[in-house]
Amino acid sequence: MNTVIFRTVAPYLAALMVLFSVFVLLRGHNEPGGGFIGGLIAASAIAIYGIAAGVDEVRKALVFHPIAVAGLGVFLAAIAGFMSLFVEAPFLKGLWLFLELSDGSELALSTPMLFDIGVYLVVVGAISSIALALEEDEETR
């Protein structure tokens, strides 16, 4: 499994996968994609990097503990629901903000997107912590 080829390719593969996961996350509202699937892609990237480079390396690269990342995700998702408190609408109402950019295009920001980012972080955190725990176990054997 842990061949030279794999170890050489893994960092680039992982970087590409994380990039792709963000793309999938952001196109999610109106097209296939979204936080859950994006989070799974990113978690697989982390798992692949972990197999190639070792779990310690991954933990160093991640800076934050995966579970803390999941906590941030839950927090963001809940906050997305509370935004509607300010417009006197029920919990979790989708609110949209359209920003005109200088080149004339439009940037849509919304609470569903914030919610999806929260889901993304929860999935990345939870799945990668499980994957890393299993890999760590494999290493110490």
Binding site: A70, G71, L72, V74, F75
Partner: peptide, 9 residues
């Protein structure tokens, strides 16, 4: 739920 999230962080 918010409390749990903050404590996880």
């Amino acid at each position: 739920m918010l409390g749990a999230a903050v404590l996880l962080m």
